[in-house]
Design a protein around this nucleic acid. Structure first.
Lengths: 224, 224
DNA sequence: TCAGTCCTCCAAAGATCTTTGGAAGACTAT
DNA sequence: ATAGTCTTCCAAAGATCTTTGGAGGACTGA
C-alpha cells in the first residue's frame, strides 16, 4: 500500500519524541531543565557529564522540539519548549512509578525512605493557604541557580549546603516548610533531616517545583 | 558519590518506559492496543510485521509494564496495562503535534486534509447530547475486531470495507456520525467521504476511541 | 586583531536495538 | 501420545545510539 508509507512516516516522527525520553541521561537533563533554563556548561556540571555528551543529548531534545535555546554572549541557555513538555515528563514519571515496581523501589532506595509512615508532609493546597495567611517560612533548598531561574513566590533561597548556617534564624518562626525539585528529588528530605537534627521542626512539601509549575501556578524569578 | 549510583538507577528505570515509546513500530502497536486487546498474530497482521518482531516489541512493552497479557487456549491476548498508559500515549501525541511541524505535516499528508477548513465535525460533548436524545446514527468504522473489543455505547459496527453495502439503510436517519481509532486515524475521514459520495450526509467525531477512553467515558464491549 | 570562553560538529569505537528464520515451549484436540 | 496452532526464545547480521577527544565556529573583551 502507498498509505503505509505515510503512516510509517507519521509514527517515525512520533517516535522522535519518544526516543528523546528514552535515555537516562536525557531524562536527567529534562529534570534539570524543568527547574529553569541553564547553560550547556551548567548542565554538564550539574549532571556530571562531559560537555560534548550534554551537547549531543541537547541536540536530540532540540530535534524533537522539546527544548528551545537562547544565546547570551558566548553562552547558550537551554529551556524546555513549554509547560506541556514538563507535563509530559511528569506524566511519564507517574506512569512509571505506578506501573513498575522497579521504579518505585529504585525511588525508595534513592529517597532512603524509612518504609511507610512519613510524617510532616504538606500538600500544595495547604501550602497555598499558609502562604496566603503569611504564617509559614518557605525554604527553597535547591541550588541558588535554580532558585534564581524560578521559585514559588514567597519562598526564600536556602541551598542545602549552606542550610546549617541559617538554622538560628529559623527557631522562632511558626512553621518551616522545605521544597526542592519534585517528587524524585532528595534535597527536601535531607533538609528536613538536617533541620530536625538542629532542633528546628520542619515539614516538607509533598512534591516540588516541577509539579508546582505543571499545575500552572505562578512562578517568581530572580532574587527575593 | 555513592548517591549518584542510586540516582542513576532511578533514571535507568525511568528510561525503560521512555525507550518503550521510542520505536515507531512499538508506537503503532500501542495505538492498536489502545483500541482493545489483541492476540500477537492479530497485531502482526494489522501492523504488517513479522510475528517474531511483534513478539519482541511486546516483550519490551511488557518489561516496561505498559502491557499485560491474558492466555486463552494457545492464544495470548495483549492489552494496555491501564488507562494511564493510553493517556500517556495521547499526551505524547499531543506534545509531538504541538511542538513539531514535522509531525503536524506528516499528519496532514497522512490524513490527506484539504488544507484548513473542515466541516462536519462533531465534538464529544455534542455527540453525548445527540446520543442521549436518540437522534443520531453512530457508526464505528473500525475493523469489527476492534468494535468487539470495545466501542462507544450506542454505536453500530460498520467497518469501512463493508460500508458501501449499508448505505441504503442510512438514507432516512436524522444524523449520521462516524468515528474510528483517534485523531491519528483516517478511517472516519474515508467513511465520510464514501458516504458523501453515495449521497448520505455524514459527519465525523472530532477524535475517536482513544480519546473517548482516556476521557474516562463508558465503553461497551461485544456485539451490539 | 588576538586570545579566551563556550558551544557544536566530526569521526571512530563501543554499546545497544532491531529484524529474521528457525528451534523450542505451551496448549488443544483427536 | 501425536499432530497442529500460536507464541516465545535464540543467535547473528545489520542498523542505530552513545561517548570521547579534538577541531572548528560564534562571540567577547582587550
Amino acid at each position: 500500500m502507498e498509505s503505509d508509507d505515510r503512516r510509517n512516516r507519521l509514527f517515525d516522527e512520533l517516535a522522535v519524541v519518544g526516543k528523546a525520553f528514552g535515555s537516562p541521561k536525557r531524562l536527567e537533563l529534562v529534570e534539570l531543565l524543568a527547574q529553569g533554563e541553564r547553560t550547556v556548561e551548567a548542565l554538564a556540571r550539574a549532571a556530571g557529564m562531559g560537555m560534548s555528551t550534554v551537547s549531543a543529548h541537547l541536540q536530540v531534545l532540540k530535534l524533537a522540539n522539546l527544548v528551545r535555546t537562547r544565546r547570551e554572549g558566548t553562552k547558550v541557555f537551554y529551556r524546555l519548549a513549554g509547560d506541556d513538555v514538563a507535563q509530559l515528563y511528569a506524566a511519564m514519571r507517574s506512569v512509571a512509578r505506578e506501573r513498575s515496581a522497579d521504579v518505585s523501589q529504585a525511588l525508595e532506595v534513592y529517597l532512603d525512605l524509612p518504609g511507610s509512615g512519613e510524617v510532616g508532609l504538606v500538600t500544595r493546597a495547604e501550602l497555598e493557604q499558609m502562604l496566603a495567611a503569611g504564617e509559614v517560612t518557605l525554604l527553597d533548598v535547591r541550588p541558588s541557580e535554580e532558585y534564581l531561574a524560578g521559585h514559588i513566590p514567597g519562598a526564600r533561597s536556602a541551598p542545602l549546603d549552606t542550610l546549617g548556617a541559617e538554622v538560628d534564624t529559623l527557631r522562632e518562626t511558626p512553621a518551616v516548610v522545605a521544597y526542592c525539585r519534585g517528587s524524585f528529588c532528595v534535597m527536601a528530605h535531607d533538609a528536613v533531616r538536617i533541620l530536625g537534627g538542629a532542633g528546628v521542626e520542619a515539614r516538607r512539601l509533598e512534591d516540588g517545583m516541577l509539579e508546582w509549575r505543571t499545575a500552572g501556578l505562578p512562578v517568581a524569578a530572580g532574587a527575593a
